[in-house]
Design a protein around this nucleic acid. Structure first.
Lengths: 153, 153
DNA sequence: CTAAATTAGTTTCATATGTAACTATTATGT
DNA sequence: ACATAATAGTTACATATGAAACTAATTTAG
């Protein structure tokens, strides 16, 4: 018959754990390309999407990288200003514009990708190949579950 | 002898995956207490820390929940304004002030904790008990590795 | 004892982000 | 054909966040 408060052990609480881990990793990665290339996380993600799938419209980019259209618009504006991407209005639908990396953008992209992969590799050293696959599988399941919960309430 | 660009498959890239998952989960959880109680994520974390360990100084809180002192200061200011916590200056060191939940704060805390745990439980339904333990172990290892990489460069 | 260095916490400024309103263009219903 | 709705993207406003400067109190070195 205790009246003690039920407490939340944050360090064992999954949402908190995910948040802290993701933030640490994201900041570490950001350090690799922020100063040398003057890119924000969102800008780099847009470049990564264009590096693989260009040409894409801003909406396409948003869908690929789970980013809302305002964030994409701002990242694109910044990348245009720095000459890293090119924009061409679609002649059939002048609301749309297809985006792709510029020559300079491709050069920057080509230098960042190995840095990003190398960082991932060093991070992965904490896990065996089997464990990496397990982690990916489980995080996929958590993600799918979180999406389901979001929709159904 | 291909000259194709090396591309980054974002959806398989660990930092990106962690970021997207953590953000979805964090937003979902936030929805549970944001509107009803008018709390931000940082404010709720401070309350959770105080709910378990009070009294704590602002610095103590920051260490417990991996939050820098500016963020703690702002969360504390907001919580004070809403009467959810109480502050008492330490008489031996007047730079410090110990913080604890107020009566209202304890009531709010007592209502949010079950919501948070229930959300975690529904999320965990994606995994078996064994898998939960595995995921926790692997994410701990990743976290430790990320910290090491941060320090050593 | 006193000047310099540390520490706790706050404020400021610049930048980032989310929501909603807005512009321009295209699609739809009658 | 034309009014209405929908879509692509931008802008505006309010709030959040990070880095650095700052205040006040305490500790340390000489």
């Amino acid at each position: 018959m205790s009246n003690a408060l039920q407490a939340l052990e944050l360090e064992k609480f999954l949402p908190y754990r995910l948040s802290v881990l993701a933030q640490l990793v994201s900041e570490s990665l950001h350090d690799l390309y922020a100063q040398p290339f003057g890119l924000s996380v969102t800008q780099w993600r847009v470049m990564a999407a264009l590096g693989r799938f260009a040409p894409l419209t801003a909406s396409d980019v948003g869908q690929r990288i789970v980013m809302d259209k305002v964030a994409v618009s701002r990242a694109v504006a910044g990348l245009m200003k720095n000459g890293l991407i090119e924009r061409a209005t679609d002649s059939h639908d002048r609301r749309r514009a297809s985006l792709k990396l510029s020559v300079r953008g491709r050069a920057v992209h080509a230098r960042i990708v190995p840095l990003a992969l190398a960082y991932q590799e060093r991070l992965h050293e904490a896990l065996s190949p089997d464990e990496r696959r397990t982690f990916d599988t489980l995080s996929d399941r958590l993600f799918a579950r979180a999406q389901t919960l979001r929709q159904t309430g």
